[in-house]
Design a protein around this nucleic acid. Sequence first.
DNA 1: CGACTGCTTGATGTTGCTCAACGTGCGTGG
DNA 2: CCACGCACGTTGAGCAACATCAAGCAGTCG
Lengths: 226, 226
Amino acid sequence: MEKTSCKFCTLKSAAAHTLKNSEIGVLENNCAQVDFMPGDNIVRQNSLSTNVVYIKSGLVKVHIRGPIRERIMKIVKAPTYLCLPSSFGDKVNHFSATAIESTSVCFIDVTVFKQFIYSNGDFALQIILDLSKGELQSLHHCLNNAQKQNIGRVADAILFFAHEIYNSTTFVLPISRQDLADLTGITRESASRILTDFHNEKIVEIEGKKISITNEALLRQISEKG
Amino acid sequence: MEKTSCKFCTLKSAAAHTLKNSEIGVLENNCAQVDFMPGDNIVRQNSLSTNVVYIKSGLVKVHIRGPIRERIMKIVKAPTYLCLPSSFGDKVNHFSATAIESTSVCFIDVTVFKQFIYSNGDFALQIILDLSKGELQSLHHCLNNAQKQNIGRVADAILFFAHEIYNSTTFVLPISRQDLADLTGITRESASRILTDFHNEKIVEIEGKKISITNEALLRQISEKG
DNA sequence: CGACTGCTTGATGTTGCTCAACGTGCGTGG
DNA sequence: CCACGCACGTTGAGCAACATCAAGCAGTCG
């Protein structure tokens, strides 16, 4: 567990920027930074949630063991808070989180966090904004998945990585086909088939994990039409 | 628009209980109560969201016009806040809300609401708790629907009405088959078929909109096994 | 080299949507 | 009052989308 100074941290959240110097001091004493390698488990479902998790850098998948199969709820890149709702709404984590790329995380004591909300209105408002945006996003994601058929969801996922994560139409998929399937809620086989279909129809070029979008307009259309 | 006194309102939210007398006064001047009949539109998707909506009494469906078809996100009973995330996360409503039973609603100015969060830590914490619990619920609901097949979702819906809404194994379904289909993400025809299947297999007794669960153990098993 | 993992591809069966037909109750307008 | 349109509900037949099952293939690690 390294010694870090929150005060001079260059990767502070919007909420943390509202903290006063004295509060930063408190934060520093109740905050632990840990680094994770790809595949490492950051948060485990059903374990006790005593810390707020802040992703300083890296890429993380948030997943949950559903009644039938594993489901990846979302893939988030730093900087972001993780699983705030679990910390506040319940005592246990409702999700697991696993590093996809090497990732730095700050664990912050939840009681300290609550203290900040209590004493610092700006901080509270920022957290509420974060929560609200997060909820809207995941509901839309959920809605999309529920109504689209497989091909549309895979198109979605590709566009997501291209624009939300890598800002490039060419990228290396950081997850396996199984993970891609879990993310879109389909089977490994279907995911594989759809990728080769896209390749054959010259919509994207696929070479192992390397993906390159060649006909973005069509891909977008597939994503929207379901 | 009736004259009401928030101070003596017996249906206050947990958050509102934390307000000081002076704050209640402010609330009273920025709060309007409106009554709705079944079928009335309370909040309209894509309209400007300038108010926080608090359901004092009644039953409401929250729905959204998806890319393909209408989708009912959830059915909530009073007392509860509605669409908080829309108010904070964005300027427009992401959902519509429609009264199912006759319903009393308080519209509260969002800037006043923000003021409370800013000045009253208890209030902020309560709102964050509400948001967190709401998000966890909707994510689980989403997850369930995504992995279950139709029969399991309908079983879910029946159990939901029995236990969350009416606290009785016999009740009158307050919505149409079409709505039930939109709630579970299936077609009207499938919903109808599954209900008659349940009836034939003596799992529930169905007579128009009157529903009576006769084999709850089996119904629960269907709901869980997908 | 053999075991193993991740990926692909084909064959088969099931689920659930679509379409179509038909009955019912309700409100509207002639 | 009746005729009509319209929303709702039920049922059946056919079909498309997917999951499942099964087999095979390349790369990797012991």
